[in-house]
Write a protein that binds this DNA or RNA. Structure first.
Length: 739
RNA sequence: GGGCGUUUAGCUCAGUGGUAGAGCGUUUCGUUGACAUCGAAAAGGCCGUAGGUUCAAUCCCUACAACGCCCACCA
């Protein structure tokens, strides 16, 4: 006997039981068979230890719709989940935790620190996964992958070795975007620009033969590292100065006046101080004129020994001190207010300090050309309000990718230095008393054993000429491994290829290239582009056919969600109050790729009402059908037109899902179910114009169409009303055909 | 400075070469059993501005404006 039909769908009480039902029946594992069409989405891996925010809920809703639809269609649908170690973010969070305990990362040797973070991540790593399950994500959890799984790491190292052998990885000294607060360098993509109100300082530099030249700068403290003054060769005002020598104030260093096209005659005085170590344009100029590179700012954000008496001062203090000194010398001409854009760290918004550092770079030009070809040939199609053009723009103007990060939490670069051959490599390590000892290896090794240095190793800085060996095993002899680790995106950029190579035997051959990559547009370049670069290089094929870029979720007033405004929607709170189905539908209905959407509580409540509507309509049909005598297959005058309309809805919904338009599909189902099926058709059942048999059949069709969007309530109804028929689980039922 | 996107009902957003749509909000009415987490009805839009193409433009083209994003950037 059926229990009495409950008045409402109790989402909170039933969702976990329904999840178990699906998991027990292994519904989410793809039915891999020859002849079945593969459909594969690689889940964008959330940070392993982060709780979900509403953006995650968005990708889960959209991807789950695609996956559930294709599963019902009979495709071998694989949604491959995983999490990311998120190197910098995670280490940053962990360091904050350490700071609360009055400690820092420099209190621990690398291995200890790595192990501590590992434990911390492990402790929290189920958070994201359980929350995704709570949202109904029908991913194949049996294939779950973590970026630091040993088999994944092995493949990442393979790729590095291959790139190195192919000459696509090199070690080079460049001006690296360095954040002195985070203590690591970044690629171009992690630098943001902010408008700042600063000052433009006009400094007089005496010329050796007499006279002076005035230069304008926003950073007077870097004058200590000047190695030239440049003017434009076409600038008549300075024609007779080119080739003369300037006596750099304070340090009294002799530097040349050079002519270079890079100088804008109209800006400032037309004469520019050249500081190769701390300005990108100046660095390039120095390469053209073979000028010395003198680093006066260190990675700690303080002035170096090269800065003479300013050594040890922080940059801001040094700026004041230098200007004071220049004023005393009568060489400060004037100071103007000046507004310009300053590069800042994308994460902590500290001003980025360009510093000369030897790092590993990936030569991106040849990789980008192949990615462009994949776009040209439509091997990969980008959906998202014109964002393919932005991607193309990046690919056409791409710069080499700095993949070195000065952090512990990540995959350590498999590069080794023979310390006997490279005594000038600077090492820093914790000695027996846990004190940091640092200096060139040649000197340090006189007073410390190699084994002690190796054990307590904190960091190692090799000059760009240092010889190195690429190897995942420690070579025999006195070798130390590079202490930098890979940019997190170097491993996640290989994600579609490497996960499928490790998930299950045959997966790669069957599912690669994947069908859809669905993610937020704000990581188009950081992630999607990198995946195209690396996966095409690794496999020869672009990793996905379609890129579906969803927009950012904003609050009901269109504002970005932020902790300071206090408008952050926590998806789990919403699930607890309104159910996962309501949240999913609210996020998806009427969204289009590439455009932001606003979601407030009103919308979620409205969709919860829709869930209730589905429940109640089902309840009515169930009760009505039980009373009616279905055995004599009654018919009614409106049955034919009912079926016609139903089939037309099926056709529309299917069409939009095929076209990757879940927002449109959702809107049609919503409107047709509510305003046609309920408001008209059910009323016609009451009037006898439509037979209950037809309505019951229609309900089944609607439940199937609704299932990808709101899996829980529809499965609950299916189990109650239709489970005895051929299809025991709605999640595996056959998608309706528009016939 | 270059590029891209957006502009539709009070709000948040879909959509279409041929009398404009949804949710929420508003107004009026309705508590006989699917649903008040509801139903019926209604108000509310020269579909950013100005031109052009077309028999016909909210939709295609051009220019402009506002807002947003990406990139570049003169030290």
């Amino acid at each position: 006997m059926e229990t009495e039909f409950p008045k409402n769908f109790d989402a909170a009480a039933q969702e976990s039981a329904l999840s178990r039902l699906w998991e027990e029946n292994r519904v989410f594992e793809p039915d891999v068979q020859a002849g079945k069409k593969p459909f594969c989405i690689i889940m964008p891996p959330p940070n392993a230890n982060d709780p979900l925010h509403v953006g995650h809920a968005m990708f889960i809703a959209i991807e789950d719709i695609f996956i559930r639809y294709h599963r019902m269609k009979g495709d071998a649908a694989l949604w491959l989940p995983g999490t990311d170690h998120a190197g910098i973010e995670t280490q940053f969070v962990f360091e904050k935790k350490l700071a609360k305990q009055g400690k820092s990362r420099f209190d621990f040797d690398r291995n200890t620190l790595y192990q501590m973070i590992w434990d911390y991540v492990r402790e929290n790593s189920d958070i994201a996964v359980n929350q995704m399950k709570a949202l109904g994500a029908s991913a194949d959890w049996s294939r779950f992958t973590f970026t630091l799984d040993p088999d994944i790491v092995a493949l990442v190292l393979d790729t590095f070795e291959k790139l190195y052998k192919d000459g696509l990885v090199y070690r080079g000294e460049r001006l690296v975007n360095y954040c002195t607060k985070c203590g690591t360098g970044y690629s171009e993509l992690e630098v943001e620009y902010e408008e700042r109100n600063d000052k433009l300082y006009f400094l007089k530099y005496p010329i050796k033969d007499g006279g002076e030249v005035v230069v304008a700068t926003t950073r007077p403290e870097t004058m200590l590292g000047d190695t030239a003054v440049a003017v434009n060769p076409k600038d008549g005002r300075f024609a007779d100065l080119v080739g003369k020598t300037v006596l750099l104030p304070i340090l009294n260093r002799e530097i040349p006046i050079i002519a270079d096209e890079m100088v804008d005659m109209a800006f400032g005085t037309g004469a520019v101080k050249i500081t190769p170590a701390h300005d990108k344009a100046d660095y390039e100029t120095s390469e053209r004129h073979t000028l010395a590179v003198i680093q006066v700012i260190g990675t700690d954000g303080r002035m170096t020994e090269e800065a003479g008496k300013f050594a040890g001062m922080k940059v801001a203090a040094a700026r004041d001190a230098v200007m004071e000194e220049m004023g005393r010398l009568g060489l400060a001409e004037k100071i103007e207010a000046y507004t310009h854009n300053v590069g800042v760290c994308y994460r902590c918004h500290t001003v980025i300090e360009p510093l000369p550092l030897a790092q590993f770079f990936v030569k991106t030009r040849p990789l980008a050309d192949r990615a462009l070809k994949a776009l040209d040939s439509k091997e990969t199609i980008v959906l998202g309000a014109g964002r393919e053009k932005i991607l193309r723009d990046w690919l056409m103007n791409i710069k080499d990718w700095n993949i070195s990060r000065q952090i512990v939490w990540g995959i350590r670069i498999p590069v080794w230095y023979d310390m006997k051959k490279n005594p000038d490599i600077v090492v820093g390590f914790l000695d027996a008393a846990n004190a940091l000892v640092q200096g060139p290896y040649g000197e340090i090794s006189r007073t410390h054993d190699f084994a002690d240095i190796e054990r307590g190793l904190q960091f190692l800085r090799a000059p760009k000429e240092a010889e190195f060996v690429v190897s995942r095993e420690k070579p025999k002899g006195v070798f130390l491994q590079e202490t930098d680790s890979f940019d997190t995106w170097f491993s996640s950029g290989q994600w579609p290829a490497i996960t499928l190579q490790t998930s299950a035997p045959g997966d790669f051959e069957y599912f690669y290239p994947t069908t859809v990559m669905e993610t937020a547009y704000d990581i188009l370049t950081r992630w999607v582009m990198r995946m195209m670069l690396l996966c095409i290089y690794m496999t020869g094929a672009s990793p996905f056919q379609y890129v579906y870029l969803h927009g950012l979720v904003r609050d009901e007033k269109g504002r970005k969600m932020s902790k300071s405004i206090g408008n952050v929607v926590n998806p789990l709170d919403v699930v607890a109050r309104y159910g996962a189905d309501a949240l999913r539908f609210a996020l998806v209905m009427s969204t289009t790729p590439g455009n932001d959407s606003s979601v407030g509580e009103d919308k979620i409540r409205g969709m919860r009402n829709f869930v209730t509507k589905v429940w109640n309509a089902s309840k009515f049909i169930d009760g009505y059908a039980n009373k009616a005598d279905l055995s004599n297959a009654d018919q009614a005058s409106g049955d034919a037109s009912f079926k016609e309309r139903l089939m037309s809805v099926v056709q529309d919904v299917t069409h939009h899902l095929e076209q990757l338009r879940p927002g449109q599909a959702a809107e049609i189902i919503h409107n047709e179910f509510w305003h046609w099926f309920c408001d008209e058709a059910i009323e016609n059942v009451k009037k006898g114009n439509v037979s209950i048999g037809q309505a019951r059949m229609g309900l089944q069709v609607f439940l199937k169409m609704l299932h990808p969007f709101m899996p829980f309530v529809t499965e609950a109804l299916w189990q109650r009303m239709f489970r005895h028929e051929q299809e025991p689980l709605l999640a595996r039922a056959q998608w309706p055909l528009a016939s």
